[in-house]
């Protein structure tokens, strides 16, 4: 409808639709400009807006891919959504579909909200990043122009300088002056080049840091942990079950490793040994705080070290890693440990 007609008919509040046979009541403020040429596409987009929950909170099919078990389930959901939209567009089963959607929306209010928040966050961070990039590009462009200007100016200055000196000097050293000037120019340009390189490296480093930061910022702060309606009406299939986060365990500094635990032996207070007995009784040894149990524990540890390893199985693995050198060393060490263990065993 043209603008003046809208003004004429609806300026005094809501009025019935002027199309014959249509009994809807229309308001002026609900009229708006048509975006698309094709009216059917315009209608479709309107319905999409409703379904995707942009206007008036009616329906809310804004599930995201990470809320689904598999890609397949997500695809099925997408198709279902498409089906709903086309039904609404073509006027098939409108009443039923709408009531379905409403029920779904009421049941899953939380996750809908959360997804909406995420969406807007993403949009915002995208905009931010975009403007940041534009700014960066502008700066780089400026820098390039500046660089070019500088180079030009320096070159001109250098040439002027050489000309001045040529004019002032005697004819004999003209060639040397020219050569010198050339050399200065070359040196300058190479210095500038290295300077540029340094700057570039710095910029690149900065850029990567910024990119990282931006990426970190771009990540949604909260994940919609409320995914999956509690009393799912079976409307959308394949949603991930909502997982309650596991309760945190007390902090364990060793990461599950017990410090005093020994697998193969029990450490005793005393082992009979003729040459160790002397040490036990020697005051000179004891005075410094030397404890023979330290020695026992170390020896036994060394003796049993490598017992849980199966060299035959590990060698192929190591070969794939390609560390031939370390292999031989390790095998030797293990073999030594085994012999030591047997000797200690004898002693026990």
């Amino acid at each position: 409808m043209c603008e003046s007609c809208v003004d004429r008919i609806f300026s005094s509040g809501p009025a019935p639709c002027p199309v014959a046979g249509c009994h809807k009541t229309l308001r002026k403020n609900r009229f708006r400009k048509q975006t698309f040429e094709d009216i059917s596409v315009e209608r479709e987009v309107d319905i999409r807006k409703r379904v995707m929950q942009i206007v008036d909170w009616s329906f809310s099919l804004n599930r995201r891919e990470d809320e689904f078990d598999s890609k397949r389930a997500y695809d099925d959901f997408l198709e279902q959504r498409e089906e709903i939209i086309s039904n609404l567009v073509n006027g098939i089963d409108v009443a039923k579909t709408e009531s379905d959607l409403k029920r779904y929306a009421a049941a899953n209010m939380d996750s809908i909200r959360a997804n909406q928040v995420r969406e807007s966050q993403e949009a915002a961070s995208f905009l931010e990043q975009q403007s940041f990039e534009q700014e960066q590009a502008r700066l780089r462009r400026q820098a390039a122009r500046q660089e070019y200007e500088n180079e030009r100016r320096e070159m001109l200055a250098g040439r002027e300088d050489v000309l001045g000196r040529l004019a002032a000097g005697s004819p004999g050293d003209a060639s040397s002056i020219a050569r010198e000037g050339q050399k200065v120019l070359l040196k300058k340009s190479s210095a500038r080049r290295s300077e540029e390189d340094r700057m570039r490296q710095k910029q690149a480093a900065l850029r990567s840091v910024e990119a990282k930061r931006a990426a970190a910022a771009g990540q949604p702060v909260t994940t919609a942990d409320t995914a999956g309606g509690e009393e799912d009406t079976g409307f959308i299939k394949g949603l991930k079950k909502a997982k309650a986060p596991e309760p945190e365990k007390p902090y364990d500094p060793f990461g599950g490793l017990e410090p005093g635990k020994r697998d193969y032996y029990v450490l005793q207070d005393r082992y009979p040994s003729s040459w160790l007995d002397r040490i036990r009784d020697d005051v000179r040894m004891q005075a410094g705080g030397y404890d023979l149990r330290e020695y026992y524990s170390r020896t036994l540890l060394e003796a049993f070290a490598g017992l849980g390893c199966f060299i035959d199985e590990e060698i192929p693995k190591r070969d794939t890693a390609g560390l031939a050198l370390s292999k031989s060393v390790a095998t030797e060490g293990a073999a030594a440990a085994v012999t030591a263990a047997s000797s200690v065993g004898n002693a026990v």
Partner: peptide
């Protein structure tokens, strides 16, 4: 990857194309 669900059906895909062209 598999083709996303919303253009899997032929008629959905055509509607999709139409929307894109209108845009």
């Amino acid at each position: 990857e598999a083709v996303p669900g919303n253009i899997r059906r032929a008629e959905h895909f055509v509607a999709f194309l139409k929307r894109f062209i209108e845009y």
